[in-house]
Simulated scan of single mutants.
Amino acid sequence: MKKFFLLLCLVAFISCKPRNTQKTEQIDTSQEEIQQSEVKEELHSKTDDKSEKNKTICYMYVNTIGGIVLRSDPDEKSYNIKSLLYKEKVQVVSRETQSVAISGVTSNWYRVRTEDDLMGYVLGAFLESNKEDLDFIEKYTGDFYLNEESDKPIISIKYLGTGEVSITAKPLHLNEQTENKSIYTILSSDEVFKCDLDGTATIQHNFYIKDDKLNYDYYYGKRREDDDGNLYYDETSKNYVLVKKGKNHLLNYFIDNFTGEFAKENEPQKTVAVINQISDDIFHINLTWKNFVGQYHEYGGDFSFSAVQDKNKVYEYSAEGGFTQVYFKVYLEDEKLKYKVACYKAYLDDDMNITEEYREDEVYTLIKIK
């Protein structure tokens, strides 16, 4: 009987062991499923975030010929990552909620990603949301005339920034009219400016874009009476394809702000650069540099406005003489004229090794003094 009881206990113990193992495996499997579920939810969440970002991707373009600086933080004194060129495309990642005023410009900082995958901050005032706006600015801002012989513009269009232009029209037989309008509105309808007057006569003035040209339609109609007392309508209508004369808006801006005499911001009494216009698109720069032994040297050369638009570069020069090398660069950055000077002298030390000693390696901000 005792043996039979022991045998029964042994069978019960053996039969219980696999059931416990199964239970443990079920628990482990359940925990693994929970972990996999959490991972899937996390991945799903990331996927949703990504798709949401894709929905809100916004690209903008640098709208100033001077280019802008991509900075490491939303602060004008933060690290200069690189210079962004005119019309360069960036992806807007976010925008700071507080606006700031810097050098007369009030705007928010935008966090952007460049096409070479650099991330940084720029002022939103120097960005344009539509590249077509930049093309419009180049083509349709300035003074437009009825023909080449006209000495007064019939319409003038000036870019105000942030996608708006100021229009000053002087239609035939009408006083001067002004209006501010968004470039988007103009491009949506091709209508630039319109003015209709109804009284003893009907006068219609319509400025619009057609075939990439600025057109002006003029209509005059008046009810008249002939000698027999019969009424008739006297009508005159004309179409003009307007002629743009003189400089474009960007070139005018460069002439107004970046020609003349310039000094270092920290030494405003001493002229170090003079920029003069010598033809429609060509300018000349003279630079005065004081070397490390107090001697003055002059450098200079011609440059084109087209080169400024393409690379923000005004002038660049390097020269070697003996063991001395100098390098100068004048360029636009953040709507300011910058002057980089680098000069070093090489010499042999006691062990006859060539050593380079920098005497000057600075970037100066130039201010216009005349």
Rank of each mutant, 00 (worst) to 15 (best):
S51Q: 07
I81A: 10
K77G: 15
I65D: 00
I57F: 04
N63Y: 00
D49L: 13
D75V: 04
D75C: 05
I68E: 01
D75E: 07
Y61L: 08
C58V: 06
P74V: 13
S51P: 00
K87M: 14
E88W: 02
Q98G: 11
R95T: 13
V100A: 12
K87S: 13
K55D: 10
T56K: 13
Q98Y: 03
Y59E: 04
S72H: 09
E52Q: 10
K53T: 00
S51G: 03
N80Q: 14
E96Y: 04
T56N: 11
S99T: 06
E76R: 10
V92F: 01
D48Q: 11
V93Q: 07
Y59F: 15
E88L: 06
D75M: 02
E52V: 07
T97I: 11
G67V: 08
G67W: 03
I81P: 11
Q91S: 06
I65W: 00
L70P: 09
E76A: 13
S72L: 11
K55L: 15
V90M: 04
S83K: 08
K50G: 13
V62H: 02
K53W: 06
I57W: 00
Y61M: 06
V100C: 06
Y86D: 02
K82D: 14
D75P: 05
S99V: 00
K53R: 15
D49P: 00
R71K: 15
L70T: 04
I81F: 12
L70C: 05
L84K: 01
E52A: 15
C58Y: 08
G67N: 03
V62Y: 00
N80A: 10
Y59G: 02
K50Q: 07
N63T: 01
L70Y: 05
N54W: 02
I102K: 11
I57V: 15
G67Y: 00
K87T: 12
T97D: 09
E96F: 02
D73I: 01
V90D: 03
V62A: 06
K82W: 07
K50P: 03
V92R: 05
R71M: 03
R71F: 01
S83P: 10
R95L: 15
K55E: 12
N63W: 04
S51V: 12
I68F: 04
V69S: 15
Y61Q: 04
K53D: 09
I68L: 06
A101T: 10
N54A: 10
T56S: 12
T64R: 15
K53V: 03
Q98S: 12
E88Y: 01
Y59P: 03
E88H: 06
N54S: 12
V69Q: 08
N80G: 08
D48A: 12
E76W: 00
S78G: 09
D49S: 12
N63K: 03
E76Q: 07
T56V: 12
I57K: 07
K77C: 14
I68D: 01
T97F: 08
T56Y: 09
I81C: 08
I81V: 14
S78I: 00
G66C: 10
L85Q: 07
K87Q: 11
L85Y: 05
S83I: 08
E88A: 08
L84M: 09
V69T: 05
A101L: 12
